[in-house]
Amino acid sequence: MTSINVRVDGMSYSDDVEPRTLLVHYLRETLGKVGTVVGCDTSNCGACTVHLDGESVKSCTVFAVQADGCEVTTIEGVSSSDGTDGALHPVQKAFHEMHGLQCGFCTPGMIMASIDLLKENPSPSETEIREGIEGNLCRCTGYQNIVRAVQQAAGEMSGSPAGADTLGAQA
């Protein structure tokens, strides 16, 4: 067992973990942060994406011991602490507004990846968004509404009107 100290979603934790414990298993099983999920074994799907010291990482491909002394943000920590609707992160809100999710399993990872992308590139083109979330697989949406959601969030976060096209060809 190895002792670690981490801050997760604004709370400090000290725990003894087996070195082989993956960060995602620590989050889910030790801390009960089940909003972050596991979708594959090979770091392809991105469902487990969290922020480690402010950068997106796949928490299934980081050992919990490697997060010692670090700050972790999960999907459960991106909105304001009371979790009320009005306090959603603009990216969360945009996923809802633009129907950027169906089953929702990839959604936490997709949102965390999108927030990270927008931090580096506040007004990405459609191609930049598609490439920026290439590490996250979604089986439901065909990605188009996810792209729209990221565009919408980019618009809102930069204070300009939504960069997205109007909602859906059929809406």
Partner: peptide
């Protein structure tokens, strides 16, 4: 190389 998350690590 791979994707953004992987390039961060």
């Amino acid at each position: 190389v791979a994707d953004r998350q992987v390039r961060h690590r």
